[in-house]
Amino acid sequence: MLTLVGEDRPGIVAAVTRALYDAGCNLGEASMIRLGGNFTIMLMVNGGQPGARLEEALAPVAADLGLRCHIDPIPGALDRHPVPNIQVRVMGADRAGIVAEVTEVLAATGFNILELDSSVCGEPGRPLYIMNILGCSGEALEVLDEAMAGLRARGVSIDIAPIETMIG
């Protein structure tokens, strides 16, 4: 698992993936997204290269683009993708603890988070936190909904909806 983070600018993905290709790597699943002015890459990379060699191959690009690089050797295989059946949308005045509070409640019900993305938006001085969670739950919607009652009473808007995936 290759992690790269640096100030966002055009050309990062092209330069990184070119360097990896030239080093004989094959790319797998990736998450690449801009977070708060940084461009972040988490990328599964497969190739006969040990971690040190990979780091070497990326060093010129990383130096050039100001990227910090981290490599974790992990086992990887073609993954069967769990299909999310619940979406949780959270919105509230930005304050510390929202994520922990919401996800603790979910975790207590056995909810498995597959994806979580969040933004801080709104006006300066009145920041708003918006979070979108996709995941798998074996619990009924009502159970999850009820579990959120306490948080809702404290002014966090939480919308829980089923995701029905159409296969055709």
Partner: peptide, 13 residues
Amino acid sequence: MGREGCLSVPDYT
């Protein structure tokens, strides 16, 4: 908006 998968596109939604 809705989530879809397909018999012709295995394991992707």
